[in-house]
Design a binder for these strands. Structure first.
Length: 233
DNA sequence: GCGACAG
DNA sequence: ATCTTGTCGC
């Protein structure tokens, strides 16, 4: 698929904040235009240290049939993080390599399931929102741990959920994808509603805590990283 | 000022 | 994210 190269990559935090201020108004929370036929999972694996801008990274995208969860397409890319890990600026670290992987996809997915936050972000512009604007596609954020907000503990069963509130607004929902497991934090990215985002995450998680999209993308980017490592040796 | 902080 | 043994439970 093709992506729009909307902006140059920031070299420092101030530039990164400026880009977030500029792009945030473009985010739209809206019902899906049509029932998605395909879902894409995205993830990134790290090679070297732990937070530096020079860290080796591998990104992966896996496209699944929205109903059968059968794998339809996949792509990977290896590169450098290019930005240090700063909570709130996380997208600048993973997006370059993720975008390269997306461009190598033979197809265009209907929805992108991102590893991290969407609206549940200090400036309401997490990775899922950012990628949604750049790709012009519906996106949602699925995070294993929350970044901010307050919420009540959801019920113990699969499907139980509770809204996450921050600064007087609902920014996400904690969602139990299996009985008794720790809930995931789901938030809207772009061109989707929170209800639809949660429904899709639940549908993509028939057996494990994490959706099949992220599980498969996680495996694929780890493999890509290992393969890149021995390509050197 | 202090602590917390997606991956 | 990543480094890692044993251990509790279905």
């Amino acid at each position: 698929m093709e992506l729009q190269r909307t902006h140059d990559w920031p070299s420092g935090e101030e530039q990164a904040y400026a880009i977030q201020r500029e792009l945030r108004p473009l985010v739209r929370t809206a019902p899906l235009a049509a029932p998605p036929r395909t879902l894409a999972g995205l993830d990134v694996a790290y090679g070297d240290s732990h937070g530096g801008a020079e860290d080796r990274v591998a990104a992966a995208v896996v496209v699944l049939d929205a109903d059968t969860l059968e794998v339809l397409d996949r792509a990977t890319a290896v590169g450098t993080a290019g930005f240090p890990y700063v909570p709130g600026l996380f997208a600048f670290r993973e997006l370059p390599t993720l975008i390269t992987a997306l461009e190598r996809l033979a197809t265009t997915p209907d929805v992108l399931l991102c590893d991290g936050q969407g609206l549940a972000h200090p400036r309401r512009f997490g990775l899922a929102c950012h990628l949604g604007v750049l790709a012009g596609l519906p996106t949602l954020g699925v995070a294993k741990t929350p970044l901010l907000g307050e919420w009540d503990e959801p019920g113990p069963a699969r499907g139980d959920s509770s809204d996450v509130r921050d600064g007087g607004e609902t920014v996400a929902r904690v969602l139990r994808t299996q009985d008794g497991v720790k809930p995931l934090t789901v938030s809207t990215g772009h061109l989707i509603t929170l209800d639809d985002a949660c429904a899709l995450v639940l549908r993509a998680s028939p057996r494990y805590r994490l959706p099949e999209t992220t599980r498969l993308a996680d495996r694929l980017c780890r493999d890509a990283l290992a393969e890149a490592a021995e390509h050197v040796a």
